[in-house]
Design a protein around this nucleic acid. Sequence first.
DNA 1: TATTGTTATACTCTATAACTATA
DNA 2: TATAGTTATAGAGTATAACAATA
Lengths: 150, 150
Amino acid sequence: MATVSDLNAHTGYWLRMVSNAVSQEFARKVAGNEVTVAEWAFMRALFDVASTPPSLLAEKMGMTKGAISKLADRLVAKGLVERADNPQDKRAHNLSLTAAGRAKVPLLASLADENDAEFFGALTRQEHEALDRLLRKLAEKRGLKSVPVD
Amino acid sequence: MATVSDLNAHTGYWLRMVSNAVSQEFARKVAGNEVTVAEWAFMRALFDVASTPPSLLAEKMGMTKGAISKLADRLVAKGLVERADNPQDKRAHNLSLTAAGRAKVPLLASLADENDAEFFGALTRQEHEALDRLLRKLAEKRGLKSVPVD
DNA sequence: TATTGTTATACTCTATAACTATA
DNA sequence: TATAGTTATAGAGTATAACAATA
């Protein structure tokens, strides 16, 4: 347990600080592409799976069904995502990127690359790789899954 | 530049995922203490400085003046923060924790400790220290400053 | 005019909980 | 009853921009 004198030891505090800065800058970068950061994350998670039910996406992304539903609505309205009926279970359906959505991924990915380079370029290559590894380890422990092909 | 095939290389994506999970859980933990995560970060930044103008706090926290102003309003209403006139410049003022605000810090800090332990306990001690160091390095490069005593 | 801070406005993000339609 | 998903509601978080007071 830390005492008040070592408040600065809180990793969560720095994590939030850095993550917010990275996301804010990325939001600016994607703003011109009619897509938000959360929408990009959604599309990115969908990119490598042919098709997936909302419930699974919610679990993977650490979000509630309701949040996924709302995000999906927006992306469907923009023509980037589509819902397909599940013949086996009429309650269920599957989400996937449309051709337009899929076509947009490389552009958005290159903006994400730029953003990564801008922020993590402050680290050496070894440091950057170490950070990546640590974050993935934490995500995994938390049940946040990457796309299947990972 | 990454190509579409190495989408998973985006550090920003994982950073956001992990940070969101950590903050969400912490929000649950502090919810019973009439304080939000952003409010705690604000109080924490204020804890080690006797008194600071909003503009400086905004710079340190990577937020706009408007956002700081709104947060300060809420904390003043809760009796945790106070504004003091600056005799040298009537436009300016200084923010500081009230006695009640200061008294609340150890409890909130211990919840932050708990949260850190819960998430970063998945790492070895060396890994946890490495993560800390990397995050601070990134924050520093970005001009996000820790409190002066750091 | 420039600067400090507040206020007005507007979104995104997300949760919780109630609801609908199946199973 | 249980489950898949949607919808309704609400609030946090934050930005941008216009504004007021003072320098």
